[in-house]
Write a protein that binds this DNA or RNA. Structure first.
Length: 274
DNA sequence: CCGTAACCCTGCGTGC
DNA sequence: TGCACGCAGGGTTACG
């Protein structure tokens, strides 16, 4: 499931190949994946436009076009965007094909069909649905230890669900939230406002470190995730707790526990994480 | 404010 | 090439 490191890897792998290319034709196989505008308007407005720049905000991939519009793509769980050879046949779950004037194609596929694409005014990006309420970018200068401390102090929710809250920090998902808490040696059930200064001093770098490591390893591939060139990542080999229920903690050998928090599976070491 | 749950959807693991 | 069922998951929305 593409979280910040996976979307960042898609961005980096795609941008060197498609920046400057011009869309020639868009084939929308499954119209419902386009949120706004209406399907016909969408395909007409993307065709003929040149890609100016690729960006990312939280888990959203942003493809900025020459006419001051931006394609906003959210992959949810199983979405993929892969730069493909001319004439690549659509797969079973290919929902849109973006053809370039050089013959190459960008194939958007999504097994679960949860992902969505929008075309919005670049100047109004910050007000776009989904983007307008996004919280701080973990690698921005706004995300400081002091910010984290101040925000945690006024939240009475458990720390794990809070880390998943995109209006708080943008880009953390289930995998990296669990990994950050393990790295910081904090129980996912701890109430945010109860974290001590010392604990926050562990959590702050842990969040940035697990995300940076995920990017360095080109993302976590459990089943579906691939980058913009169709390549799997290797960060699954670096995970300490996620999807390791019953397996020994790599620090203390205690079996990794799995509980449910905020409706999500949560993996942690009951001994290391207090 | 906080927690829970339904919804969207398909593939996969499980039990028979 | 068995089949029915339930679960998983990100974000949004609804509800208590």
């Amino acid at each position: 499931m593409p979280e910040l490191p996976e979307v960042e890897t898609v961005k980096r792998s795609l941008e060197k190949h498609i920046t400057g290319l011009t869309f020639s034709e868009i084939i929308l196989i499954m119209p419902k994946i386009v949120k706004v505008p209406a399907p016909q308007s969408f395909t007409e407005n993307v065709a003929g436009k040149k890609i100016k720049k690729i960006g990312r905000r939280g888990k959203y991939l942003l493809i900025h076009l020459s006419d001051n519009n931006t394609l906003v793509i959210h992959f949810r769980m199983t979405g993929r965007l892969v730069y493909s050879e001319p004439g690549t046949p659509p797969g079973k779950h290919t929902h849109a094909i973006f053809k370039f004037s050089n013959g190459y194609e960008l194939h958007y596929s999504d097994i679960r069909q949860f992902g969505r694409i929008s075309l919005v005014d670049t100047d109004k990006l910050d007000a776009a649905p989904g983007l307008k309420d996004l919280g701080v970018e973990p690698f921005s200068e706004n995300f400081t230890r002091e910010f984290l401390k101040r925000e945690l102090k006024r939240r009475r929710t458990k720390i794990k669900p809070l880390l998943l809250d995109q209006t708080f920090i943008a880009g953390l998902g289930n995998i990296y939230a669990d990994e950050a808490l393990h790295r910081a040696r904090l129980s996912p059930e701890k109430t945010a406002s109860n974290l001590t200064t010392r604990e926050i001093a562990r959590l702050y770098p842990a969040i940035k470190d697990v995300l940076a490591e995920g990017i360095a390893n080109r993302g976590t591939t459990f089943r579906d995730y691939v980058d913009g060139m169709g390549q799997a990542g290797s960060n699954q080999e670096a995970l300490k707790v996620y999807d390791r229920e019953g397996k020994p903690c790599l620090s203390c050998k205690t079996p990794i526990a799995r509980i449910r928090l905020g409706g999500r599976s949560t993996y942690y070491c009951p001994k290391c994480q207090k």
